[in-house]
Design a protein around this nucleic acid. Structure first.
Lengths: 112, 112
DNA sequence: CCCATGATTCGATAATTATCGAAATATAGG
DNA sequence: CCTATATTTCGATAATTATCGAATCATGGG
């Protein structure tokens, strides 16, 4: 995983409406949620919601599928896990971390 | 954990130099790294580095301590773990996630 | 084909964030 | 006390990002 996509993912999540949308999608699971429904739940105009969903999609954090006239968005859990792995990579320089540090990053074999 | 601090943390990490600095600190462990050394390693002017370190500090992701004339920064692992917990909170709406989804968020009792 | 619905794209504007030199602050040593 | 070092604060400017209405595109039904 390279830092450019990581930054895009972090930037995508670092915004009130996008974070809220992402969390709703995480909780929704594979069913996903339609764009219009997200806009309604968050009280955001459709065009703004679309802009935010595009950012999340471009960052690889969510996926979209069309279902009739609606576009259903879903969280991509694997992407989130790659992101977390990247952030804790080589934690503590390989020294076994104290438990209370909670540093539990698994060794990343696909590290860039 | 409330979303405001989460957004601050994500925004703090969503920047090239700050992400690089944070990762160096994660790998450095408790020894930490001095501000000047970080600036040198990243090829960033001292004043810019200071600005970025302030953002990370304000987000609660790193801590600082003075050691003689230097200020040593260290990663706060617990903060990172809280952040990850928040992002995967209530993953899949409580439905046991598929293994390949890698969704391993523990139940967050201190969830906001 | 026409109309309604759901969503995205466009374009202009407002708001936020990054950059970096110069000046200021803190610490240490002679 | 004076000087050197390490870092932060200030201030001005550049760059990026968010917002939202209007226009456009895609789908489905009558």
């Amino acid at each position: 995983m390279q830092s450019e996509i990581v930054i895009r993912a972090l930037a995508a999540l670092a915004q009130e409406h996008r974070l809220a949308a992402y969390r709703l999608l995480v909780q929704a699971g594979d069913d996903g949620i339609a764009a219009g429904m997200l806009a309604e739940k968050l009280g955001v105009p459709a065009s703004s919601m679309s802009f935010h969903l595009a950012q999340l999609t471009h960052a690889g954090l969510i996926t979209q599928r069309r279902q009739s006239r609606s576009i259903i968005y879903s969280a991509d859990y694997a992407a989130m896990n790659r992101l977390m792995g990247y952030l804790t990579e080589n934690c503590c320089g390989g020294i076994p971390c104290a438990d209370d540090a909670g540093c539990s990053a698994p060794p990343q074999s696909d590290a860039a």
